[in-house]
Design a protein around this nucleic acid. Structure first.
Lengths: 214, 214
DNA sequence: TGTACATCAGTGAACGCGCGTTCACTGATGTAC
DNA sequence: TGTACATCAGTGAACGCGCGTTCACTGATGTAC
């Protein structure tokens, strides 16, 4: 049995993390589909052959990056979306969360936005799986609101999807907002806030429309 | 002066188109950032060096693909979005347009969705420029609706952006809906229709909210 | 605690291969007279 | 219309280079007794 990590395991994890970090940094200027194994090991400071001790291929490393980038987000999402307060407060809090995350993990955000529709199938699929989990979680939180009384599960999910897509889109726009012009970020945030507001309004009146409970 | 095309020009255009077509096909399984010049010329049936008679680099070819994929869409967008009819009719028409376009030009749609956040800056920028034009056009059409009376220009644009993003997202989902399961496409369409409906409801009540005309 | 052996993360040389780019070229098309 | 010259899209050889993958290896860490 191997319970306590041990020096060997710890060193292995360190190398693995060095590979992930190096890859993520190299991905700021290219897509995963053009990332080279030697390029990664060179940046990580290990021999090319060491790569195979951790991943079977670059695609495999990409899937690990998806877990790293999105796996840890679940608790944050949950606490934020299930927070109390009226619509405006929630919108402000969600936008703060997004902006904070973009500042703290810009490379992760870029990676997800880029590879969501990227050229490496297993990575694309891993991202869609994780985003599907997020949508389900957001949907659960939304369902608990009084406004959601009488909503079908499908409708709750379509609303959750709208929010999740908007959040990811906003994160990506914030990332591209040039640091040279500080107004750019505020403009993106204001726009996103309005879109959330409009969706919120659509939400409160969803069941008003003719045949609304069908 | 060279007015009438001439045999030479016509042949040149043909080769250029062969390069674009070959590239687009090769891009179904990878990102532009990993597409090779020799790969493209081989698929197009010309010598590698012929490439330089048409493009300075793969990035340059990518920008040309953006024009090809999005440039021709403007008239279609315009006629569809400015069509008459009530909300439901418009939604159905928009979804038909999207589905039709995805069927007619799947590789173009995939290319735009993939490279919108892809690893090649000039291509990303070209796509954003074109999507900005679409947003402006959709905004103009929306502004003509009676519902838009009293709306600020900024609000009209944020609504247009919401629609444009939703359309592109839907197109991408339709593309990935497996042909093996025909219900998948319908499910995507129904979901998108609901989202459009909800946004439309938010739109009609936009000015109702407290301080709505601020 | 000490010793003898097993494990295995990381190494370094070697391989064949396809890459992007250069260069001088060819021969069909275009132009001037 | 015919001729002589210019243009230029596409060719094919050549280059140096970095790629992914294989293999036998080394030496520190782990394990059994």
């Amino acid at each position: 049995m191997s319970h306590i990590p041990g020096v060997r395991q710890a060193q292995k994890q360190k190398t693995r993390q060095a590979l992930l970090d190096a890859a993520l940094e190299l991905l700021e200027g290219q897509s995963l589909s053009s990332l080279g194994l030697r390029e990664v090991t060179r940046a990580a400071g290990v021999a090319p052959t060491a790569f195979y001790r951790h991943f079977r291929s670059i695609a495999d490393l990409g899937v690990a990056l998806v877990e790293e980038a999105l796996g840890s987000l679940h608790p944050t999402i949950r606490t934020t979306v299930s927070t109390t307060g009226d619509g405006e407060e929630r919108i402000a809090r969600a936008l703060e969360l997004i902006a904070g995350h973009v500042d703290a993990y810009p490379a992760h955000v870029r990676f997800i936005a880029r590879e969501r529709h990227g050229g490496v199938r297993p990575v694309r699929e891993a991202i869609h799986r994780q985003l599907g989990l997020f949508t389900a979680e957001v949907g659960e939180a939304l369902a608990k609101d009084p406004v959601s009384a009488g909503w079908s599960e499908e409708d709750v999910l379509m609303l959750a999807q709208l929010y999740v897509d908007l959040m990811l889109g906003t994160a990506s726009l914030l990332l591209e907002a040039p640091a040279s012009e500080p107004g750019a970020r505020e403009r993106v945030s204001r726009m996103a806030a309005r879109q959330m507001r409009l969706i919120g309004i659509g939400r409160t009146h969803w069941l008003d429309r003719p045949g609304g409970d069908r």
